[in-house]
Simulated assay, not measured.
Amino acid sequence: MQELQFTQHLPISLDEAWLFFSNPANLKEITPSHMGFVVTSKYHGEKMYPGQIIRYIVKPVLGIPLKWCTEITHVVDRKYFIDEQRFGPYAFWHHQHHFIEVDGGVLMRDILNYKVPLGFLGNIVDAVFINNEVRGIFEYRKKILTERFGSL
């Protein structure tokens, strides 16, 4: 299993950060276009909630569409939320999104634990491709968020 952590400081209020990140409609904006990311589920309001199921189509390799379904398992308003894969490309996916108010803005911390399927073969594919792709997605997100909100 892999554990990756990413942090970013944004010069926005905690309320503004929470409003943006807790709205599933904003996921597409912070996902690289080459991923072909489309949210296919209907929203139940603009804010996420524990038990919410979010379905996507994503095209991570050669434009081949994969269905992905996550559940928002935990939400503590303006502090953190957790999404977990229920079915999709990973054997395991657990993603924590933390928001900490700091001087001049917000520190966002993501903690991602994932495991790819296919045992030893999957581990090779992860080392050669998937881990770099996941890191690239978070680098892209950081760039887009800096363009949108600025940086500290």
Rank of each mutant, 00 (worst) to 15 (best):
F87S: 09
G88K: 08
P89A: 01
A91K: 08
A91C: 03
A91N: 00
F92L: 11
F92N: 12
W93N: 08
W93H: 14
W93K: 06
W93G: 06
H94A: 11
H94G: 02
H94Y: 12
H95Y: 10
H95M: 03
H95S: 03
Q96S: 10
H98A: 13
H98W: 07
I100A: 00
E101V: 02
D103A: 10
G105H: 10
L107I: 01
L107Y: 00
D110W: 15
L112V: 11
L112E: 01
Y114L: 03
K115Y: 02
P117E: 12
P117N: 12
P117R: 11
G119T: 14
F120K: 11
F120Y: 13
F120C: 11
L121V: 15
G122P: 05
N123A: 03
I124K: 13
V125S: 01
D126V: 10
V128W: 15
F129V: 11
F129D: 05
I130S: 02
N132F: 02
V134A: 15
V134L: 03
V134G: 01
G136I: 11
I137L: 13
I137E: 02
I137S: 11
I137H: 07
F138H: 11
R141T: 05
R141M: 09
K142G: 00
K143Y: 01
I144S: 04
I144A: 00
T146A: 11
E147R: 04
E147D: 13
R148C: 08
